[in-house]
Design a protein around this nucleic acid. Sequence first.
DNA 1: GACTGATATAATGACATAGTTATATGGTTG
DNA 2: CAACCATATAACTATGTCATTATATCAGTC
Lengths: 114, 114
Amino acid sequence: MDAFEALADPTRRQVLDLLSRRERTAGELGRGFPSVSQPGMSRHLRVLREAGLVRVRRERSYRIYSIRSDGLAGVDAWMRKYREFWKQELDSLERYLDGSGLSTAESRRTRRHR
Amino acid sequence: MDAFEALADPTRRQVLDLLSRRERTAGELGRGFPSVSQPGMSRHLRVLREAGLVRVRRERSYRIYSIRSDGLAGVDAWMRKYREFWKQELDSLERYLDGSGLSTAESRRTRRHR
DNA sequence: GACTGATATAATGACATAGTTATATGGTTG
DNA sequence: CAACCATATAACTATGTCATTATATCAGTC
């Protein structure tokens, strides 16, 4: 399962959100999702691992999971070429605002905020 | 189907790649993927549309599809909080290189290129 | 070395997805 | 308005995904 498929599941995205703050054991992650059984979480973690989105290391009897940027960097790279699209839309918003009654300062503020 | 699920399919990502260059009719998009039947492509386009990733307009008897940044901007926003992860890794690479035999100029070049 | 705690794998079932063929819709043209 | 072209929807099938229960693995402890 590739990174895009792995990210399609909301639970897995939430797991990454938790890991983005700090690394956690499999058990901690599992307890964070009462709606998911222990084997269910284990499977999600496996998917994330095989997609290159997380890494594991063993410590005592625990498995400690943490974010691995490789996979996400790949997704980010794919998205890069689209980023200009909303930048473009902001630009045309700016042009529109510049043409209207707003001052340029106000336009810039508007742009910065959205 | 949300934007993340829509992006999980490689064909749909390729469709977006085509549309990132210029808008196209459903037929043009279909012909771009000989491995996908006409109804198959129509379905993919529907998924992309309902996920907010593309928009359609009618012109003559054609349906013209184009990128709609809303959906992708949402995905990008989710990814934003991870971007610092590889930036961080680049920073530690830089620190490592600065500490090694490389000149600072070489380190900066390395950093900029990856 | 048996027992326990932490985690992974196996087996299975319900449901979703993507592809296929057949058919419908809707605008365009003679 | 009949025939045609572009595209969408329906019905169906194959395959995949996710969740569940039961079981295995494996390290640490008594």
